[in-house]
Computed example of a mutant assay.
Amino acid sequence: MSHDAVREFTTDKTWTDPGEQAAFEWIAPHCSGVPVLDIGIGAGRTIELMKSMSSDYTGIDYTEKLLDMARERFPGTDLRHMDARDMSELPSGHFGLVAFSWNGIDAVDYEGRVRILNEMYRVLRPGGYVLFSSHNRDGPGYGENVWKLLPRLTLNPVKLGWRTLRTLRRLPVASFNYVRHAKLNRDFEGYSIMTAAAHNFGIVIVYTTLREQRRQLAEVGFESDVVFGSCEGDRIPDDAEKSDAWWLHFIAHKPHAVS
């Protein structure tokens, strides 16, 4: 794990963006006191947010190092090492809320994404909710390249000097990663696989569209409730097929009557 990634996951944070706050505020009245499952907890940013809704809390993460950090910060909390693509250790039909924040679902390939959604559906009780965020293919983050790292101009010579030094430090690694990962870029109907600027272009992620993610949720068996954009925390109209948000926060539920 890179130094930047460790710093990002261990910095004390509350909401990642206004959209996440709006999504949590929307879902909290529906999930008060129910068993909650927190996927991709990292070093524990979301633990207190989720526990404010319910004390019946379970958190999981794939990365042992981050999980150990979370255990140190929150002793006695039910935190488990687990891959979200296979949560067979967890009971079916148990949780009233399953959340996967900070676009964590984008970090696996498309087939893995479908497996995660199916596992989320399985562990949910009828009427239970899912909440997750995903990078938006129609947003400004799609198609970023190394030019993004060039220093922003400013009349302040100290700031400009600092930004230039930071760019010089990052650019060699970022350029190497970008060239190495760009060959993996692929566009498909409704989604793309693309290298992202985060962590010096050290990751390749899924970018989805509103239409495709709603279709995918319906295919798994969910009924969509609401989507919030990351930038202003605005609720996106149900009939909208595009948004200019960087990423999207989806809320859906498992129907009470499953056919």
Score class of each variant (00 low, 15 high):
G229W: 00
S175H: 15
L217D: 02
S230I: 09
E189Y: 11
W147A: 05
L149T: 04
G190R: 09
K242E: 12
P151Y: 15
I236C: 00
K242I: 06
S230H: 08
R169I: 11
A218E: 07
R163H: 07
R214G: 10
Q216Y: 04
R211V: 11
V226N: 00
L171G: 11
L160S: 03
F176M: 09
S224C: 13
F228A: 13
S175R: 14
H181R: 07
D238A: 06
M194K: 06
R180C: 05
E212L: 12
L165R: 08
R235I: 12
D239L: 02
L184P: 02
L153C: 15
V179N: 07
E232H: 05
D234M: 00
D244I: 14
A174V: 04
L149V: 08
D238G: 05
I203C: 12
P157T: 02
S243H: 07
N177H: 02
N200K: 05
Q213Y: 04
M194D: 13
L168R: 14
R170G: 06
A182N: 13
R235S: 05
L149Y: 02
D238I: 05
V158H: 03
G229M: 03
L153Y: 14
F188H: 07
S175P: 09
L150F: 06
V227M: 01
P157A: 04
T209Q: 12
A240M: 00
V226Q: 03
R152M: 11
